[in-house]
C-alpha cells in the first residue's frame, strides 16, 4: 500500500503515539470511567490503521504484521477465557470474581474486571487491525 503526502506523515508522526496511549488509558481505567476493553481496543486499532494508511506498507511486511496481529488476537481470546476458567478452578464458578476487590475508585480495584478489560482490549484491537490488514492485502492477491 502506498503512503500519503508529507503533511499527513508529519501529523501522523505527532499524534499516533498519543492516540495509542489514550487507548491504553481507556482500557486500564475501564472499571472506573466510561470506556473499557472494547472502546480502548478500537482506539488502539485506529492508531495502527492510521499509521498504515499514512506511511504505507510493503506486501511482505504486511503479511507478517497480519500474522502477528492474528496471534495477538488469539492471545487476547485465550487470556479472557483463561480468566473465566481460573474462576471455575479456584472458586467453582465460571467467571467468578476471585480476586480481592480493593478500595473502590482506585486503579487496582474491581477484582478480575481490569484483567478482563485488558484481555478484551488486546483481542479487539488486534482483531480489528487483522481485519483491516486482510482487507488491505486483497489488492495484492488480485494482482498476482
Amino acid at each position: 500500500m502506498r503512503g500519503m503526502s508529507l503533511v499527513v506523515k508529519v501529523v501522523t508522526n505527532i499524534v499516533v503515539g498519543f492516540i495509542f496511549i489514550y487507548g491504553v488509558y481507556i482500557i486500564l481505567h475501564g472499571h472506573l470511567t466510561p470506556g473499557g476493553g472494547f472502546a480502548g481496543g478500537v482506539i488502539i486499532a485506529g492508531a495502527l490503521v492510521l499509521r498504515i494508511l499514512a506511511f504505507g506498507v510493503e506486501p511482505v511486511s504486511e503479511k507478517r504484521a497480519e500474522e502477528r496481529a492474528s496471534a495477538f488476537e488469539s492471545l487476547g481470546a485465550l487470556l479472557f477465557i483463561g480468566i473465566a476458567f481460573a474462576g471455575l478452578i479456584i472458586g467453582g464458578a465460571f467467571f467468578l470474581n476471585f480476586l480481592p476487590q480493593g478500595t473502590p475508585l482506585r486503579l487496582l480495584s474491581g477484582g478480575i474486571i481490569p484483567l478482563c478489560n485488558i484481555a478484551i482490549g488486546i483481542k479487539v484491537g488486534a482483531g480489528l487491525f487483522t481485519i483491516f490488514l486482510a482487507l488491505a492485502a486483497i489488492k495484492y492477491v488480485m494482482e498476482d
Partner: peptide, 23 residues
Amino acid sequence: CGGANIVADVILDFRALDTLGEA
C-alpha cells in the same frame, strides 16, 4: 464487584458470559 463504572461491573462480572459470546 468493586468497579466504580457500573457498566463494567455488569458486562464483565454479572453478565460476563454474554461478553464471552460477544468476543
